[in-house]
Design a protein around this nucleic acid. Structure first.
Length: 871
DNA sequence: CGGCTAAGTCTAAGG
DNA sequence: TCCTTAGACTTA
C-alpha cells in the first residue's frame, strides 16, 4: 500500500520543534528499542500493531456503533470503515497499575523513563492480548477492593497522623477551610496517602521537600482542575466561567526498595526491586482572603510545586491542558512571566482523540472513555458537592484521574498506530502553552467609542429600514429572507426581468435566494436590493463587531478563547469573540440625519480599529504570503508555478496572475482585481464548476470555462496533484497533510455521486489547507520559543488569523523583533528537524501600527527592486 | 403564549 | 456540485 509520504516523494520524519518536546520524545522513547527514528520503519510497526488491533477489536466488538457526526454533516464520518476504533488496553499499561510484566525492560524504570504505558504495544499475537485482557479484569477487581478498603468510617478530627512518603505526618483530606480539617481514621496505614488527597497546605517542611523530590522523580503526573462545586475539568458540560479552586494531582512515582523513599513492602505493586505508587495531591490555587503571612508562604510553595510540574521530565496528563496552563499563569500573577510556560508539555487526550478523528469536535471525557476504553469502565463526571458528600466527590476524582491516565495511555498507542505520534508531540502539544498565553492576554477596547458607534449604526439601520419599506411599498421584516424573497421575486418579479437567466435558486422553491450574488445581479432593476445589501453590511458590522464585541467585554477588555480541536483541517478557531472573523475592510455609511455635525456626509467604521495597542506598544502583523498557493506549488511540483515563486520571490504572485489572465501590466492591478484572482484561483484548484466560477467572476459561463481550461493547462501538474490525491483517498479512505495530519473521508467511497464528489473536493482542499495550517502553527511555536529564549525581547503573540500572526511589541523592540519574526517564519521552508523541505520559498510580509485597523507595511530590508507603483 | 431548540440562510474571515 | 470556520438571525 502506497502511503502518502511515499507519494509526496520525501520522508516525513518528524522531530521535536522545541527542546521540551525533545525531552518528552526521548523520555517516551527510551527503553523502546524497536521504535524507529525512521518514518518508513515506524510505519511498518504501525501496520503490525494495526493488524493486531483489528484482530483484537473483532474479539471485543460489542456491536456498538457510535455515530459521531454531531457537528458537521458535510464532514467525514468519525470512524474509518470496518474497523472499530475501540482499542485494546495496551499490554504494557497493566504493569503500571497492577503487575510486573515478564518482558519489562529495565530501562523503563529509570528515573527519566516514561511510564511503560508510553511504549507502543507491538505484540501482534491475539493470544497475548487475551492474556492481557484477563490481567486487566484482575486489576479491575483489585481496584474495586481498594476502593472498598479506602472508604472507612469518616470521622472529623483535628490532625490525624498518617504516613506520607513513609514518614509520619499529618494527613489531610481535600478540604475547603483550613480551620476545619477532615481526617480519616486509617492514618496509620502506609497506603493512606494513596487513598486520599494530601492537601499541600498542611505539609510540614520535610514533607514539602519530599513532595518536590517526588515530583522530580515522578513517572507520571495526572492533573485536573477542580472547581468550586467539586466538579473537575472532566465533567461533561463546563460552566461558562467556572471558578477554579485548585488542582487535583495524581503523582505516580517509582519507589526503589532500597531507595530513600522506601515504603513498607506491603504496598509493593511490582515486587521486583521497584514499585509504582500513586499519590494524590491537592493544590489550592484560589487565593483565600484570610491569608496573611501564612497564605504568602503557602503561595510561594505552591508556585514552586507548579514550576516543578511545568518542567517535569515525565509526561503530565491533563484533559484540556490549556486551561491548566492558563490557571497556572494566573496563579503566578505578576511575578510570573508567560515565558515560564513555553516549554510545558501536557498530554491532552482530547487533542489526541481529535488527531485520530478530527470530525469528532468536542468529545467529553466520558465520550472518550466510552470510545477508547473498554466498556467495563464507566465514569461518573457530574459528581459535585451539591449532590454527593465530600468523600464521595474526592474518591470520584481519584478514580477519574486513574481512568484519565489509562485513557491517555490508550490514546498514545493509537496515535502511534496512525502515525500521528510525532505530530502530536512536536506540534500540537507545544502549541498548548502558546494558546494559553494568548488567552491570558487581553485587548483594550474603548467602550465609550464602541457604544457611540453602536448608536450611530443603529440610527443608520432605522433609516435604511424605512427606505426599504418605502420602496417596497409595504412594511416587512427586513431581516427575514423569506419575506424579502416574497417581495423581490413574488411581488416585483425581479428574477424575470433579470438579464441573466441563471440566478442561483434555493433548492425547494422556484424562486432565487436572497444571497449577495443574487441581489447584486438585480441591483440595477430596483432600488430595494441595494438598500438590502447595505442594510446587511451595516447590520453585520453592528451586531457582530460592535455589539458582539461589547458583549464579550470583561473589565474593559476582551480576550478570545482559542480552540485547538475545533476544525477538521487542523486550523485553529476562536470564539467570544471570533477574532479571526472580524472584518478587515472598513465600511462607509452616510451619516444619519439625527446625528449632530455636518462636516462630512460619510463616516468610516473600521472594526479592527477598535483594537488598540497599549501605550508604548505597537501591533506587528506577520503574514505568510500566498501560503496555500505555495504549498500547492510544492505538493504538485508544477514547474510553472514553482518558477513563479522562485523567480519572483519578492513580487506579488496574485498580481502577476491577474495581469496574465486579464492581459494588463502587473502594476495596474487593483486590490479588488487581486482579491478576485485569489478567489478564482482557489476556486479552480479546489474543484469549482464553471457556473460557480462565472458567478464569482461576473462573466459568462463560457468565459469562465475558458479561463478554467487555460489555467489548468498552463499549470498542468495541478491536475495531476488533484487526481493523485483523490486516488490516494479512494485507496486508503483518508488523506494526509505534509505533517501527517489525517482526515478520514469514508464518503469518498459512497454510492451517491454527489457525496463522493464532495469528499473528493474535501480531500484536495484538506491536503493544501491542512498543510498550510500546520506551517502556521509551527510558525507560532517557533516565534514564541524564540522570543522566550531572548533575554530582552518581550513581544507577545496575541492572535492568529490563519496565515497572520499578530504581536504586541514594545516600540523600541520593533526592528529587532521584526527581523526575528521574518527570519523565523521564512526559515520554515526548511525544517531539517522535520525533514520538511519545501520546494518554494516562503515569504512573510510585515506590517505595524498602533491599532489593528491601521497597519502599514513595515519597511523591509532595502532592496534595489523596490519601487512604488504608479497606477 | 413565551421560551426553547434545531435547522437553514446569510455574511464575516481565511486560503 | 470550491473548502473551513463563527455568529446572528429567522423559521418551524
Amino acid at each position: 500500500m502506497e502511503n502518502y509520504e511515499a507519494f509526496l516523494g520525501f520522508d516525513l520524519c518528524k522531530v521535536p520543534l522545541s527542546s521540551a518536546a525533545q525531552k518528552i520524545m526521548s523520555a517516551v522513547h527510551s527503553g523502546d528499542s524497536v521504535e524507529s527514528k525512521n518514518w518508513r520503519e515506524s510505519e511498518k510497526t504501525a501496520e503490525v500493531v494495526n493488524n493486531s488491533r483489528i484482530k483484537y477489536s473483532v474479539l471485543l466488538e460489542n456491536g456498538k456503533n457510535q455515530s459521531l457526526e454531531k457537528r458537521n454533516l458535510n464532514s467525514s464520518t468519525s470512524q474509518t470503515s470496518g474497523s472499530s476504533i475501540k482499542l485494546c488496553p495496551p499490554s504494557s499499561s497493566i504493569r503500571l497499575t497492577d503487575q510486573p510484566s515478564a518482558d519489562q525492560n529495565q530501562k523503563n524504570v529509570s528515573s527519566l523513563a516514561p511510564p511503560s504505558c508510553f511504549i507502543p504495544q507491538r505484540n501482534p499475537e491475539a493470544s497475548v492480548l487475551q492474556k492481557t485482557e484477563s490481567k486487566r479484569t484482575h486489576f479491575l477487581k483489585e481496584n474495586k477492593n481498594n476502593e472498598k478498603r479506602e472508604m472507612p468510617v469518616n470521622l472529623k478530627r483535628k490532625h490525624g497522623a498518617c504516613h506520607f512518603s513513609g514518614k509520619t505526618n499529618k494527613h489531610v483530606a481535600l478540604e475547603e477551610n483550613a480551620d476545619e480539617v477532615e481526617a480519616h481514621l486509617n492514618c496509620g496505614n502506609a497506603r493512606a496517602c494513596e487513598n486520599h488527597f494530601c492537601d499541600v497546605r498542611y505539609l510540614d517542611d520535610l514533607e514539602k521537600s519530599q513532595l518536590v523530590e517526588m515530583l522530580k522523580q515522578a513517572v507520571a503526573v495526572v492533573v485536573t482542575l477542580m472547581y468550586e462545586d467539586g466538579s473537575t475539568q472532566l465533567r461533561a458540560e463546563q460552566a461558562l466561567f467556572p471558578s477554579v479552586k485548585g488542582i487535583a494531582v495524581l503523582l505516580q512515582s517509582r519507589v526503589d526498595s532500597s531507595g530513600p523513599l522506601d515504603v513498607s513492602a506491603s504496598d509493593s505493586v511490582l515486587g521486583e526491586g521497584s514499585t509504582l505508587r500513586d499519590q494524590y495531591i491537592y493544590l489550592q490555587t484560589e487565593h483565600s482572603s484570610t491569608g496573611g503571612q501564612e497564605q504568602e508562604a503557602y503561595n510561594q510553595f505552591a508556585r514552586k510545586v507548579l514550576f516543578q510540574m511545568l518542567k517535569c521530565k515525565c509526561p503530565v496528563v491533563c484533559f484540556n491542558a490549556k486551561d491548566f496552563v492558563r490557571t497556572v499563569l494566573q496563579f503566578f500573577g505578576k511575578d510570573g512571566s508567560w515565558k515560564h510556560v513555553v516549554h510545558f508539555i501536557g498530554l491532552d487526550p482530547r487533542i489526541a482523540a481529535w488527531l485520530i478523528d478530527p470530525g469528532d469536535a468536542a468529545p467529553s471525557f466520558e465520550d472518550l472513555v466510552a470510545k477508547y476504553l473498554e466498556s467495563s469502565i464507566s465514569v461518573k463526571v457530574n459528581c459535585t458537592y451539591g449532590n454527593s458528600s465530600r468523600n464521595v466527590v474526592n474518591q470520584n476524582v481519584r478514580v477519574n484521574l486513574k481512568i484519565l491516565h489509562k485513557l491517555m495511555t490508550g490514546l498514545c498507542s493509537q496515535l502511534k498506530v496512525y502515525g500521528l505520534w510525532q505530530l502530536f508531540c512536536t506540534l500540537e502539544l507545544p502549541l498548548i502553552p502558546v494558546l494559553a498565553v494568548m488567552e491570558s492576554h487581553s485587548f483594550q477596547v474603548n467602550r465609550e467609542e464602541m457604544e457611540r458607534t453602536s448608536a450611530l449604526l443603529g440610527s443608520r439601520l432605522k433609516e435604511l429600514e424605512q427606505e426599504a419599506h418605502f420602496v417596497a411599498g409595504e412594511q416587512f421584516l427586513i431581516t427575514s429572507n423569506n419575506q424579502l424573497q416574497e417581495i423581490l421575486f413574488g411581488k416585483l418579479k425581479l428574477h424575470l426581468l433579470s438579464p441573466r437567466e441563471t440566478l442561483p435558486r434555493t433548492g425547494l422553491q422556484r424562486l432565487p435566494s436572497t444571497s449577495e450574488s443574487v441581489l447584486s445581479a438585480v441591483q440595477d432593476l430596483h432600488p430595494l436590493p441595494k438598500i438590502i445589501l447595505e442594510y446587511r453590511r451595516v447590520h453585520k458590522t453592528k451586531s457582530a463587531f460592535v455589539d458582539g464585541l461589547l458583549a464579550c467585554m470583561r473589565k474593559g477588555s476582551i480576550s478570545s478563547t482559542w480552540n485547538q480541536t475545533g476544525t477538521v483541517t487542523g486550523r485553529l478557531s476562536a470564539r467570544h469573540p471570533n477574532i479571526q472573523g472580524i472584518s478587515k475592510h472598513p465600511i462607509q455609511i452616510t451619516k444619519p440625519q439625527n446625528v449632530k455635525g455636518t462636516e462630512g456626509t460619510m463616516l468610516t467604521i473600521s472594526p479592527r480599529s477598535m483594537f488598540v495597542a497599549p501605550e508604548g506598544h505597537t501591533f506587528l502583523a506577520a503574514d505568510f504570503s500566498q501560503i496555500e498557493l505555495r504549498i500547492l506549488a510544492h505538493l504538485s511540483g508544477d514547474p510553472e508555478l514553482l518558477k513563479l515563486f522562485q523567480e519572483s520571490e519578492r513580487n506579488d504572485v496574485f498580481s502577476i496572475l491577474t495581469s496574465q489572465w486579464k492581459d494588463i501590466t502587473p502594476e495596474c492591478v487593483t486590490r479588488a482585481d487581486r482579491e478576485q484572482t485569489k478567489k478564482v484561483v482557489y476556486s479552480a484548484v479546489y474543484g469549482a464548476g464553471k457556473e460557480r466560477l462565472a458567478a464569482c467572476l461576473g462573466v459568462t459561463v463560457q468565459e469562465a470555462a475558458r479561463f478554467l481550461e487555460s489555467f489548468l493547462q498552463k499549470y498542468k501538474k495541478i491536475k495531476d496533484f488533484v487526481q493523485t490525491t483523490i486516488a490516494q483517498c479512494h485507496q486508503t479512505g483518508y488523506v494526509a497533510s505534509i505533517t501527517g495530519r489525517r482526515r478520514p473521508l469514508p464518503r469518498v467511497r459512497a454510492q451517491d455521486r454527489q457525496l463522493r464528489a464532495q469528499a473528493e473536493r474535501q480531500a484536495v482542499n484538506f491536503v493544501v489547507q491542512g498543510s498550510a495550517a500546520d506551517l502556521c502553527k509551527i510558525a507560532m511555536i517557533h516565534v514564541f520559543t524564540a522570543v522566550a529564549a531572548s533575554p530582552t525581547l518581550t513581544a507577545r503573540l496575541v492572535a492568529q488569523i490563519h496565515d497572520e500572526l499578530l504581536f504586541e511589541v514594545e516600540d523600541s523592540q520593533i526592528p529587532e523583533f521584526a527581523a526575528l519574526v521574518r527570519g523565523t517564519m521564512e526559515s520554515l521552508q526548511n525544517v531539517p528537524a522535520l525533514e520538511l523541505q519545501l520546494q518554494v520559498p516562503l515569504k512573510v510580509s510585515l506590517s505595524a501600527g498602533h491599532t489593528w485597523g491601521h497597519l502599514v507595511p513595515l519597511q523591509e530590508a532595502p532592496r534595489p527592486s523596490d519601487q512604488p507603483t504608479s497606477c
